[in-house]
Amino acid sequence: MDSIGNFFSEYGALLFEKTWEHLFISFAALALGVIVAVPLGILLVRLPKIAGLIMGIAGVVQTFPSLAILAFFIPLLGIGKVPAIVALFLYSMLPILRNTYIGVKNVDPNLLEASRGMGMTAFQRTTRVELPLAVPVIMAGIRMTAVYLIGWATLASFIGGGGLGDFIFDGLNLFRPDLIIGGAVPVTLLAILLDWILGKLEKAATPLGIRLERGEA
């Protein structure tokens, strides 16, 4: 307990700062991933001839070692938060893109045909039929990605991006278990908390009819 108290007395203010840096990097990458991957996933449903190619490219990028991607962006973007966010954004693409594509593609064709019969435009069918029905699958991808990004964001420390990874890697370099724990425990707690919050958001965003069918309402 004394070591914990000493850690907070010595690094309390810095821990708060690094936590916010960590959240900023993670959420910036997640926001970019959602902004790009969700519309792209919807578009790919309309373009089945190239959907396999795009999904394959996204899958290949996902297999690249994270440190290699971070290092790749250093000559292009330098060091700091920007290359870290860009690299994490690339990693966030595949789960969100895949879930959006699957969710929209699996919408009941009979419902789409009924919406056409009601005179809905393509935009209205997308926003009022396809997206609401695909929300549970899309949110599952976003939720999984967000939790992953919290962990991956620790690697931003390697290129001067900051975050809680600074504590972890400083602890490894200095043989300081207290620094390692001081970085690893908040990362774990953030991931658990974010998963719980997004789980609640996923349930709230799911149409009532789907929740009743699942017995969740």
Results as ranks from 00 to 15, higher is better:
Leu131Lys: 01
Leu131Val: 14
Leu131Met: 14
Leu131Trp: 07
Leu133Ala: 13
Ala134Thr: 12
Pro136Ser: 11
Ile138Gln: 00
Ile138Glu: 00
Ile138Val: 14
Ala140Val: 09
Ile142Gln: 02
Ile142Ala: 05
Arg143Glu: 07
Thr145Met: 05
Thr145Ser: 13
Ala146Ser: 13
Val147Glu: 08
Ile150Thr: 00
Ile150His: 00
Ala153Pro: 00
Thr154Gln: 06
Thr154Trp: 06
Thr154Asn: 09
Leu155Thr: 11
Leu155Ala: 12
Leu155Tyr: 08
Ser157Ala: 15
Ser157Phe: 10
Ser157Leu: 02
Phe158Asn: 06
Phe158Pro: 00
Gly161Trp: 04
Gly161Ile: 06
Gly161Thr: 06
Gly163Phe: 03
Gly163Thr: 03
Leu164Glu: 04
Leu164Met: 11
Gly165Leu: 05
Asp166Met: 11
Phe167His: 04
Phe167Thr: 05
Ile168Met: 12
Phe169Asn: 06
Gly171Met: 08
Gly171Cys: 09
Leu174Gly: 05
Leu174Val: 06
Phe175Trp: 11
Arg176Gly: 04
Pro177Ile: 02
Pro177Glu: 07
Pro177Thr: 03
Asp178Cys: 05
Leu179Pro: 01
Ile180Met: 15
Ile181Ser: 00
Ile181Arg: 00
Gly183Leu: 03
Ala184Val: 11
Ala184Gln: 06
Ala184Thr: 11
Ala184Asn: 05
Val185Cys: 13
Val185Gln: 13
Pro186Gln: 05
Val187Thr: 12
Thr188Gln: 00
Leu189Phe: 15
Leu190Ser: 01
Leu190Ala: 09
Ala191Ser: 14
Ile192Pro: 10
Ile192Asn: 07
Ile192Trp: 12
Leu193Gln: 01
Leu193Trp: 10
Leu193Thr: 15
Leu194Gly: 08
Asp195Ile: 02
Trp196Pro: 00
Trp196Leu: 14
Ile197Trp: 06
Ile197Cys: 12
Leu198Tyr: 10
Leu198Thr: 13
Lys200Glu: 12
Leu201Thr: 13
Leu201Ser: 10
Leu201Asp: 03
Glu202His: 10
Lys203Met: 10
Ala204Met: 11
Ala204Trp: 11
